[in-house]
Design a binder for these strands. Structure first.
Lengths: 243, 243
DNA sequence: CGGATGCTTGAAGCTGCTCAAGTGAAGTGG
DNA sequence: CCACTTCACTTGAGCAGCTTCAAGCATCCG
C-alpha cells in the first residue's frame, strides 16, 4: 500500500534514515534529483515534536498549509454530518501521508485526530509545488502519490458484505502496522471498535459479532485491541468473497 | 460539480467556444497564461469524431495516454471483479473529465464505455505535464482539478440509506445534465436502471421500488428513462436525511 | 470498592436482497 | 400488419443480514 510498493528499492549508499520505509520516500528522493535540489528538499522537511493522543492535527475549515507524513503513531481522519453522526474516512499509520483532502479548496475538509501519540514530517505545500516546478520528476511523483492515495480510498468502499469488509480490514491493517522486517501477524489496533465500525460503515455490534465469527472459523484471535491473524490466506479468501 | 463552480466566470472578450461551460475550462484557460502558452495549450487539444454508443474509450490495463473531457454524450466507468460482477464507478457527462484513474500506475484501472454517442476533447498527458512545468498556475490547476474530481467521488459513497442515495442521485444527475441556460427539471437518463443501481450499490429491484416510493411522495415523475423532478427541495431534504 | 468506559451478547425488527412472475415497449419475421 | 420474441423494468413474497435497543461483562482508574 506504500507509494513505492511497485518500484524496486533504491540503493542510496550512505543515505539511510527513517524515511527509508516511508510513503514519502519516492517523493523525498525522486530519481533525477541532483545534489543541490536534494539539499533543497531536505531543508523543507520539518519534524514535529511528539503530538499527544487526543489532540487534533487539523480541523475542518483550517487553512491548507502542508502535507504530513506519519513517522510514528496513528491519526484518524473523519467528518461529522449535520446530524452529529461521526464518519471515519480512514486511518493514517507509520509511513503514510495525509493532508491531500485540502488541495482543492485550500481548506481542510475533514478533521485529523491523533489516536496514538505521533511524530510527523511536515512539508509546506508551497515549497513542494515550487520545487516540483524546477524538477520534472518531482512533479510527476507528487501527482502519482496523490492519485495513489485516492485510489486506495476508493478500493475500500466496495458494496460487499460486512464480513468481507472486516476480513479485508484486518489483513490490510496488519500489513500496514507490521514493521518492515517483522514476520508475525500479531499487532495491536490503534483505534476503537467504534472507529473501525464507522470506517467500515457497520454498527459496532455487528463488528463485534463478525470478529467473533471469524474467530470461530479459526482465522483470527482477538483480545481487546490485541489481534493475531491465525490464517491470513483464509481471511484473504473471505475478503475476496470466496466461500 | 464543475471544476470552476466556485470561481467567477472569466471575461475573455472574443474567445468563446464550447469550452466555456466545460469542466476543463480553468485547466484550458488558466489565469496567468500568456498568449504564446495559450496558443501552445490550444494546439494540444484534439477533438474526436463522434464515438458510437456501445464502444469502449479505454479498458483496464490500457496504457495511460491522455485526459479526456466530454463535449457531448455519456460515458460510464466501471470494473468487473473476479466473480464477474460489474461495479459502476461513475458517469461522465457533458463538461466532465475522465482518465485520472490511470495517473498513478500509468495504466487504466477501469473500463470506459460509451453509453450515449460522444464527442470528446483529448489532451495528451505528456503535453499537459510539460506545459505545467513552464506555467506555475497551470500546474496548480491540474492538481486542483484532480483533487476535486476525487473528492466528489468520495462524497457520493456515504453509508446512508438507499432512499437518500437515490434522491441524491436524481438531484445530482439533474444538475449535471441540465443545459447551462435551462431552467427545467426534466431530463432523460443516459443509463439503464441496472447501471444506476450498481453505481448506488443497491439492487435494480430496490431502485425500482424506491423510484416508485419517491413518485408516491409527489417528488418525482419517472417514465422509463424520462424523469421530471417535481419537488427538488423535497428530494434534497430526503437526500440529506431530513425526515 | 465504585463508577466509567468500551466491548460483547441477546432478541426483535426493518431494510434491502433474491427469486420469480408479470408487464409493457420495441423490434423481428412471417 | 400482427403475432412472437426480446429486453428492460416493475411488482410481489419470503428471507437474510444488519441495525437497534437493551442488558451483561470486563477492564481501567479514581
Amino acid at each position: 500500500m506504500h507509494a513505492h510498493a511497485h518500484t524496486s528499492p533504491l540503493q542510496l549508499g550512505g543515505v539511510r534514515s527513517a524515511c527509508e520505509y516511508c510513503a514519502l520516500f519516492e517523493l523525498c528522493w525522486p530519481r533525477g534529483l541532483d545534489a543541490s535540489n536534494l539539499q533543497r528538499l531536505q531543508s523543507m522537511v520539518r519534524h514535529t515534536d511528539v503530538l499527544p493522543c487526543g489532540s487534533h492535527l487539523f480541523r475542518v475549515g483550517d487553512e491548507f498549509t502542508a502535507i504530513y507524513a506519519v513517522r510514528s503513531g496513528c491519526i484518524k481522519s473523519y467528518t461529522v454530518d449535520r446530524g452529529g453522526h461521526e464518519f471515519v474516512h480512514g486511518f493514517h499509520l507509520r509511513g503514510e501521508m495525509l493532508g491531500f483532502d485540502a488541495v482543492y479548496p485550500d481548506r481542510h475538509c475533514c478533521n485529523a485526530l491523533i489516536l496514538e501519540s505521533c511524530s510527523l514530517c511536515v512539508i509546506p505545500y508551497r515549497d513542494i509545488t515550487r520545487l516540483s516546478q524546477d524538477v520534472p520528476s518531482m512533479q510527476r511523483q507528487l501527482i502519482r502519490v496523490m492519485s495513489h492515495e485516492f485510489a486506495t480510498q476508493l478500493r475500500n468502499r466496495g458494496g460487499y458484505g460486512a464480513t468481507q469488509r472486516v476480513a479485508a480490514f484486518l489483513v490490510n491493517i496488519c500489513s500496514r502496522l507490521r514493521q518492515p522486517d517483522s514476520t508475525t501477524d500479531v499487532f495491536r489496533l490503534p483505534m476503537s471498535r467504534e472507529d473501525i465500525a464507522s470506517y467500515l460503515s457497520i454498527s459496532p455490534e455487528t463488528l463485534s459479532r463478525l470478529l467473533a465469527k471469524l474467530h470461530g472459523l479459526g482465522l483470527v484471535d482477538v483480545d481487546r485491541r490485541n489481534v493475531r491473524l491465525v490464517d491470513v490466506t483464509g481471511l484473504d479468501q473471505i475478503a475476496q468473497g470466496i466461500h
